[in-house]
Design a protein around this nucleic acid. Structure first.
Length: 262
DNA sequence: CTTGTGCCCTGACCGC
DNA sequence: TGCGGTCAGGGCACAA
């Protein structure tokens, strides 16, 4: 399930391949994937258009096009882009085909939760979910002071806070668990009870976890997190070797170590 | 302000 | 073997 590091890695890969390229033709295989405009208008507007860049904002992938249009894509659970030969067999879950000169860009999404919008700058500024995104955790705005403001301004559980896209953009269920485990903080811990040095540590760890994940993903194609691995295996705590506990916190399946995380 | 629930969708997995 | 039920998971609407 793509979170900030996965989307960032994908954006970098696509940027290298797509920048300066022209879209020859678009085929929408699953109409419900296109939220705006209607699929026919969508395809027509993209035909012949040149890609000028690929960016990321939160978990959104932004494909920037000539003529000030942006294709805003959310991968949700299972969405992904593949670059294939034009003649390669079309995968069963392909939702949108972008025919380029000499290759295809294909949007594949098993569960069909992913979606895309083709937008003018003005529409982009108003797109719910995108325009309301909070601070970029790897950007210069995300300072310790900023995290303190966010934490002090709310009275919810820590994990619920980390998952709030309108506060901090891009953290999902897996990295939230990894971050809280590394910070030795209980996912249900009330944000208001954090001491100043715990906020500082949390700030450092958020950046470190995400930054490392981006680097490992682009290097090995797979993020290796100490806790993520244990989480996957439903194993023991890599630190104290006690049993992990699992439960639903902030509406999400949560793994944590009841002994280490307070 | 907060938490909780259902919805979207499909494949994996379970018990029978 | 195959059937039906359950579940995950991001984001959103909606209710409490």
């Amino acid at each position: 399930m793509p979170e900030l590091p996965d989307v960032e890695t994908l954006a970098r890969r696509l940027r290298r391949r797509l920048r300066g390229r022209r879209i020859r033709r678009v085929r929408v295989l699953t109409p419900s994937t296109i939220r705006h405009p209607d699929p026919a208008t969508f395809s027509r507007a993209l035909r012949g258009r040149r890609i000028v860049g690929v960016d990321r904002r939160g978990k959104y992938l932004l494909i920037c096009l000539r003529g000030d249009l942006t294709l805003a894509v959310h991968l949700r659970m299972t969405g992904d882009f593949e670059i294939t030969d034009s003649g390669a067999p079309v995968h069963r879950h392909t939702r949108v085909l972008f025919e380029m000169n000499g290759f295809h860009l294909r949007f594949i999404d098993l569960r069909r939760f992913g979606h895309m919008d083709l937008l003018t700058p003005r529409q982009l500024q108003r797109l719910p979910g995108l325009s309301t995104l909070g601070v970029e955790p790897l950007g210069p705005q995300f300072t310790r002071i900023r995290l303190r403001e966010i934490v002090r301004g709310h009275r919810m559980g820590l994990k619920a806070l980390l998952l709030r896209q309108d506060l901090i953009a891009g953290i999902g269920n897996l990295y939230a668990d990894e971050i809280l485990w590394q910070a030795r903080l209980h996912p249900a811990r009330a944000t208001g009870t954090l001491r100043e040095e715990q906020i500082a540590a949390l700030h450092r760890i958020i950046r470190r976890v995400l930054d490392r994940a981006v680097r490992r993903l682009s290097r090995y194609g797979r993020a290796v997190g100490v806790f993520l691995d244990a989480r996957e295996r439903e194993g023991r705590c890599p630190r104290c070797h006690g049993p992990l506990r699992t439960g639903r916190i902030g509406g999400r399946t949560t793994f944590f170590c009841p002994r280490c995380q307070r």
